[in-house]
């Protein structure tokens, strides 16, 4: 674009508006390794003691951070795996296969995709209690998977839609049945989509708070989001340096994944608009 206008006023305005985020984020990082006198804004000494939580629980009675991290990995990993493996077949069926009720299924997925799932949480809570899945990691994984699924199917359908029909027609004319065509010819074309959806579901579950909070509040199945919220909530005199260290520890995988796979994930944001 040519610059037949002055950019600095826009830059300045943006900079001022971005200040809160920049400040919050800068202090998120700085405060984890420094101490600051109350009331002052400038840190006065370097320290690593806020990271002690990695080796010993910050307060007595708190779970070990590594056990919680493992839970979170299990939660996010399983969710991502199930979402991807279920979406990969349903997305194809909706995009390419003739079947009874196809129109109905498409409408259903689209409706669910927009549907505010959080409104169902009371019924789900009661159902999990009745089936004994309440307070288990498996229960939360199943629920999170189900809630992510319409989005996943929709995204996968979108990726399948971009594979040229002719590839499939050629495969059929070459003598391959529909399953082989899918497995050998179409699936390799949507690998980038699978990776993107996998990452996206992983991050979504990694950040999820309400579901674990409501459906598995117990210590044994807590994940980093509920662990951190309990830490903040129970504290009478907030130790923000500790919160920020735990928070940074929690956010680090998210930011790393975004830094590496930025472009891939933006694809999904372009296609799906779940806010």
């Amino acid at each position: 674009m040519t610059s037949n206008f002055k950019t600095w006023p826009v830059t300045l305005l943006l900079a001022v508006l971005s200040l809160p985020i920049v400040i919050m984020f800068a202090y998120l990082i700085v405060d984890t390794v420094t101490d600051t006198t109350a009331g002052s804004l400038i840190p006065d000494r370097f320290t690593l003691e806020h990271w002690r939580f990695l080796f010993e629980p910050p307060q007595t009675g708190r779970a070990d951070i590594w056990a919680v991290t493992l839970n979170t990995f299990l939660f996010a990993g399983s969710t991502s795996l199930i979402v991807v493996s279920v979406s990969v077949t349903s997305g194809y069926a909706l995009s390419r296969l003739n079947m009874p009720f196809r129109k109905f299924f498409l409408g259903g997925v689209l409706t669910l995709h927009a549907f505010p799932t959080v409104t169902l949480i009371i019924a789900i809570f009661l159902m999990l209690q009745m089936t004994g899945l309440y307070n288990t990691l498996i229960g939360v994984i199943l629920v999170k998977t189900a809630l992510e699924l319409p989005f996943g199917i929709w995204i996968m359908k979108g990726f399948y839609d971009t594979v040229p029909w002719e590839i499939e027609m050629a495969g059929i004319a070459d003598g391959a049945d529909r399953f082989t065509v899918w497995r050998k010819l179409v699936l390799p074309q949507v690998h980038p989509g699978l990776a993107a959806l996998g990452l996206f579901s992983f991050l979504s579950a990694w950040s999820e708070f309400i579901l674990p909070q409501v459906l598995a509040p117990d210590g044994a199945s807590q994940v980093l989001s509920t662990y951190m919220q309990n830490l903040i909530k129970d504290d009478r005199a907030p130790d923000f340096n500790l919160f920020k260290s735990v928070g940074l520890f929690y956010a680090l995988p998210v930011m790393t994944i975004y830094l590496i796979f930025n472009q891939k994930l933006m694809n999904i944001y372009g296609g799906g608009t779940k806010g």
Binding site: S85, P100, R102, L120, I124, M127
Partner: peptide, 25 residues
């Protein structure tokens, strides 16, 4: 046969949707 394949491909999703969307609603 493509119908069967399609419904088979949809089955896991249908099951999950019935359990966690339809039933809760």
């Amino acid at each position: 046969r493509a119908h069967l394949l399609g419904l088979g491909f949809m089955a896991p999703a249908l099951l999950i949707v019935c359990l966690f969307f339809l039933a809760p609603v």
